[in-house]
């Protein structure tokens, strides 16, 4: 009786299986897209917090920790003390100053370890989405009285994401400072956000606190925003913060709607210019 499978068939199959096993790489191809790092990384302890000073002047880092860090006071150096080694400054940074000096128009001020950095190659995959590299832009905030439209001086402006604290001058402006450009990563796989968003809180004695969210942030340019504050009157019994939510740019909203529109659903767009 003839055996089935034959010895020859078994050997051939074994050889083929060995070939398949050998062809599977032990390490993934270096150019393959990796999802590691898809979560936005925020700068490490060298995060630049220009504490009320112009970004061209390296300042003592009073908030030198990632915004996500929790617990305790973030400032181990007394405010105003200069020239001392900040406890959060990593080895290698000199003179107790930030390791980064953002200049005007520096779009990619990268403080964090991320994919593609330092290799001299353009980042690809998630790194090219703009979430793994810390990006900054120049920002200033103007604070005005919501009724009289007059500038409010000496108001304290706090950037929520970085805990930077700044003061307004006589014209109601903060100095230009370096602020991060954060895009919400939840939208990226569908359609890239065309601008980042930032939030500030403004405090001033005699006024309601103002929370201003959704400030549009673009890399590489100078931007400004205006925060309105409202005086506390004698008839105000319940005093709570005032919220202003800046909307998304409508160009991006159009893109978002176009992204998921069925072919059969005719909307505003190139079909009806």
């Amino acid at each position: 009786m003839k055996r089935f499978p034959s010895m020859k068939t078994v050997l051939l199959c074994g050889f083929a299986a060995a070939l398949v096993a050998i062809s599977i790489p032990a390490n993934p191809h270096p150019s393959a897209h990796r999802l590691t790092g898809a979560i936005a990384t925020i700068g490490n302890g060298t995060d630049n917090a220009a504490n009320g000073q112009t970004p061209t002047q390296p300042t003592n880092n009073s908030t030198g920790r990632p915004p996500g860090a929790t617990g305790g006071q973030n400032n181990t150096t007394p405010p105003g003390a200069t020239g001392e080694q900040n406890s959060t400054t990593p080895p290698g940074a000199t003179g107790g100053q930030n390791s980064t000096t953002p200049g005007a128009g520096s779009a990619n001020n990268n403080n964090s370890a991320s994919i593609g950095q330092g290799t001299g190659r353009a980042p690809h995959g998630p790194a090219s989405w703009g979430y793994t590299q810390r990006k900054t832009a120049e920002l200033r905030v103007r604070v005005i009285d919501g009724r009289s439209r007059q500038p409010i001086s000496n108001a304290e402006v706090v950037v929520i994401e970085t805990e930077q604290r700044l003061r307004t001058d006589a014209n109601g402006y903060t100095p230009w400072f370096s602020a991060p450009v954060f895009r919400n990563p939840r939208y990226r796989p569908m359609v890239a956000e065309l601008h980042g968003q930032l939030g500030v809180i403004v405090y001033k004695n005699g006024y309601r606190d103002s929370i201003h969210l959704g400030i549009r942030m673009h890399e590489g340019i100078r931007q400004q925003t205006t925060v309105w504050m409202y005086k506390i009157g004698p008839g105000d019994r319940r005093i709570e913060p005032v919220l202003y939510q800046e909307p998304y740019h409508h160009i991006w909203l159009i893109q978002l709607a176009d992204k998921f529109r069925q072919k059969s659903q005719i909307g505003e767009g190139p079909e009806r210019p």
Partner: peptide, 22 residues
């Protein structure tokens, strides 16, 4: 003017005598 579509010259908007922002 209208939004138009990204990375495209948007010729159809020229035909409609509207500028495409993109």
């Amino acid at each position: 003017y209208r939004a138009g579509i990204e990375n495209d010259p948007n010729w159809q908007y020229r035909n409609a005598q509207k500028m495409a922002q993109w």
